[in-house]
């Protein structure tokens, strides 16, 4: 009897200590022997036997391609009306069930116009008839609200478009000249915007602007843990993307950036350019620049056009000088090539 009792006790103690020990000792599974490397902010090279967690400098790609978005303009299906007016037809489909990688390894439920955040850049000339065939394939109600001049019933506020195939056609004359945002305007508005239902609407002056390498930058952010503070910031959605994929431009070439600030939660955003200053046209409504600066401050949906050219080749940073934003992704590089050795690129 004593024997069984002590055996039981020993067994009990063994089990207890065994379980504790198993929990105590970290479990190392499939230790990889191959060394990987990454660089730090100060350029040091670090080796690791594990995995690299680096959205900042390590080249990586996700579903959405900011390079493609950067120089992509949607001019619509063009037709001419009887009175000679250009008609531009667009089809925009809203969805709200996609889960996309918005930073390497980070998956977030984005609500999209035509499958991307931001939605397509809609571009027309002043006076064109813009016709948007809006289909809501989401599960919630959505609309499209354009900043600009249009009739009240085309404002996308009271004309709620129900989900699961609801439709609406927005029709208005493009104007005024400039760069404007469009976004969903269903309440709760903040929720619909921060999930990604926004895009850029460019209205060109009839006489056009001087030829330039034209870029679109939507300054945006994501609050992935829903604490009403952004976890990520970016120019064109993907944090740090243009840092490891520098935007290639040429010396002595006019660069024109249509910049729209869609960051929510934080009252301001800004745009600082290195090694240069730019002519700035607030909202792009005037053809004469208002400022010559390297720093503009943008409130919610505040936007404008920046024009500049580089004299010297090399790598130049551009970033939010609200450094918190740049250290969470809103930072990039221009790789300026010597114009004499490469072909000039002209957008538009």
């Amino acid at each position: 009897m004593i024997f069984t009792r002590s055996t039981l006790m020993v067994l009990l103690l063994t089990v207890t200590f065994g379980v504790s020990f198993a929990l105590l000792s970290p479990i190392f599974t499939d230790a990889q022997l191959e060394q990987k490397t990454f660089v730090t902010h100060s350029g040091r090279v670090i080796e690791t036997s594990g995995e690299v967690l680096d959205p900042v400098y390590t080249v990586s790609t996700v579903d959405f391609d900011p390079d493609e978005f950067l120089r992509n303009f949607e001019y619509g299906r063009i037709s001419i009306s009887d009175n000679g007016q250009t008609i531009r037809d667009y089809t925009i489909i809203a969805e709200d069930d996609k889960v996309q990688e918005i930073s390497p390894g980070v998956f977030f439920n984005v609500w999209t116009f035509n499958g991307t955040v931001p939605g397509p850049t809609i571009r027309a000339t002043e006076g064109d008839l813009v016709r948007i065939h809006f289909i809501n394939n989401g599960s919630k109600s959505h609309t499209m609200h354009f900043h600009g001049i249009h009739p009240a019933e085309m404002d996308g506020v009271f004309e709620i478009v129900g989900g699961n195939g609801g439709q609406f056609t927005y029709e208005f004359e493009a104007g005024p000249v400039g760069v404007h945002p469009y976004h969903c305007h269903v309440m709760p508005l903040e929720e619909h915007i921060v999930h990604g239902l926004y895009g850029v609407f460019i209205v060109d002056p009839k006489e056009g602007r001087p030829p330039a390498d034209e870029l679109v930058m939507v300054l945006n952010g994501f609050d992935t843990d829903f604490d009403t503070e952004n976890n990520f910031y970016a120019a064109n959605t993907i944090p740090f993307y243009y840092q490891h994929h520098p935007i290639q431009i040429n010396t002595d070439q006019l660069i024109r950036i249509y910049v729209v600030n869609m960051v929510e939660f934080d009252p301001i955003n800004n745009f600082h350019l290195h090694g240069n200053l730019y002519q700035y046209y607030p909202t792009g409504t005037d053809l004469v620049p208002s400022f010559y600066t390297d720093m503009i401050t943008l409130s919610q949906t505040e936007r404008g056009i920046m024009e500049f050219q580089y004299d010297y080749p090399g790598k130049y940073l551009f970033h939010a000088h609200k450094v918190e934003f740049s250290e969470k992704g809103w930072v990039g590089l221009f790789l300026v090539k010597d114009n004499s050795t490469s072909e000039a690129y002209y957008g538009n």
């Binding site: 929990l23 970290p26 479990i27 190392f28 599974t29 499939d30 230790a31 990889q32 990987k36 990454f38 660089v39 730090t40 902010h41 670090i46 690791t48 036997s49 594990g50 995995e51 690299v52 967690l53 680096d54 959205p55 900042v56 400098y57 390590t58 930073s103 390497p104 390894g105 980070v106 944090p239 740090f240 918190e324 250290e327 969470k328 992704g329």
Partner: peptide, 27 residues
């Protein structure tokens, strides 16, 4: 585990042995 930050600012980092953590696993 996909990202590390110091004072809420994103930094390049490494995770050993790997970033997949099962329940109670440490890295």
């Amino acid at each position: 585990v996909v990202m590390a930050d110091v004072n809420d600012r994103i930094h390049p980092a490494a995770i050993e042995p790997d970033k997949f953590l099962n329940r109670y696993e440490t890295a």
